[in-house]
Design a binder for these strands. Structure first.
Lengths: 228, 228
DNA sequence: TATAATTGTTAGGCTAATCTAACAAATTTA
DNA sequence: TAAATTTGTTAGATTAGCCTAACAATTATA
């Protein structure tokens, strides 16, 4: 059984490597900063997790999760996201309030609890932020995320988040009927002024490149192409 | 903010003093035993809690909660019992499975969470074991509990638990339509063989003194009399 | 009431997770 | 490539909560 703290290190490593679209490994300082501790503390723990065969780590090297470590990390991420979904859907927490509480709830130890919760929520696939929820087997669809601006013309994609979190932008997003998990279809790109013509819920709209850049989406069509 | 461990000591003290119908104060060894630690450890913590003005404690004396300590203890008990209710009612945990998980959940720090949970559960007054749930103001109706055998003839009471937890007994209880929170009315006592005539859900039944002794009830009629 | 048993306390140690301060390796930049 | 900067490591200290072992106070019992 892992300690609260060990779990947090594994989760951080997961976020910094597997879930980040940039790097595949993380440095000691980076890990420390992410957890809000000093590098010396992180160093101690990295050595400990290496001994437990949960991470790959060598002196002065970068760290990654082992297969075993990844298994644990996925369990924690699953718990975190299921709790976020619960808070949002059942307890009427707002989008931005769920994270803090889920940080605590994710450490509750009870397989039965989390599987019952999953069922209670009717096996959701994404949390309120649009992040995929690993299933009970620990499988996670790492969907390629990108901005709406980068999407292919003709493709249908799903909004999973925003980059800009200002109230002004969020209200704008809302006003054209867009929200998390909404399907967006790119109808065309206006050559003249670069506006994108999109369809949301049957309604057509034209949005600026600046707007599109701040909408984060996943596209299962693109993901399929990537798999081949 | 109290630590996980400090919270557990306060909760234990609450259970051993305020909620126990016997004593009003608890000894160091007793507290240690209840928490599964050694008396030396409990001693350390009692001194610490005294410094924080959460308990009354003197060397070689018994301990009790201060007003402040009682406030915290009630918050923890409230959380514990609301979570038990959630697990039982929403996630279909059984009666005996809820406690262990609630022991963990009770330490989640979020006032908002617990108030939303309370609302979600529609402000329950008792948990699945029939124990009263403190309200958001920390008020708890300490209802006098006794066995069905001790109830007055003519009174209506509410089943809040059982003493015997054997499957055989529980099935017996079930078979006469009795369950937690069921109202039971004592119709009469048979002088000849001491059987109690009771009414549950409109149906009459006769039960033995041995049976009645193992049914725990509260009687608001009796409580009212006590208040005067 | 003296002794035995129980109950409570103290001193000193251990572990997990953190810190600071000093240092060492690796990387960047001039 | 040498110097400067960044990144990572080590040693030693701290804190919370627990332990054991020895002892002291209290309570029960002969």
């Amino acid at each position: 059984m892992l300690s609260f703290t060990e779990e947090n290190y594994l989760k951080t490593l997961f976020q910094l490597t597997i879930e980040s679209n940039e790097k595949l490994e993380a440095g000691t300082n980076e890990i420390a900063a992410h957890l809000g501790v000093k590098p010396a503390s992180a160093n101690d723990m990295l050595k400990k997790l290496k001994d437990k065969k949960l991470i790959h780590y060598e002196k002065y090297g970068k760290s990654t999760l082992t297969k075993e470590g990844r298994k644990y990390a996925l369990e924690i991420v699953r718990k975190h996201r299921l709790w976020e979904t619960f808070l949002y859907e059942k307890l009427e927490f707002s989008w931005d309030e769920v994270h803090e509480v889920a940080e605590q709830l994710e450490h509750i130890q009870s397989k039965k609890l989390i599987d019952k919760l999953d069922k209670f929520l009717d096996y959701p696939e994404v949390d309120p932020h649009g992040d995929a929820i690993p299933n009970a087997k620990g499988e996670l669809e790492i969907s390629q995320r990108k901005s709406l601006l980068e999407e292919e013309i003709g493709h249908a994609c799903k909004m999973v988040g925003v980059k800009d979190n200002s109230a002004a932008f969020l209200q704008y997003v809302d006003s054209i009927g867009l929200s998390i998990n909404q399907t967006i279809r790119i109808k065309a790109k206006e050559e003249f002024d670069d506006l994108l013509e999109i369809e949301v819920n049957g309604k057509k709209n034209r949005v600026s490149p600046k707007f599109a850049e701040n909408i984060i989406i996943t596209c299962s069509e693109c993901n399929k192409l990537r798999k081949n």
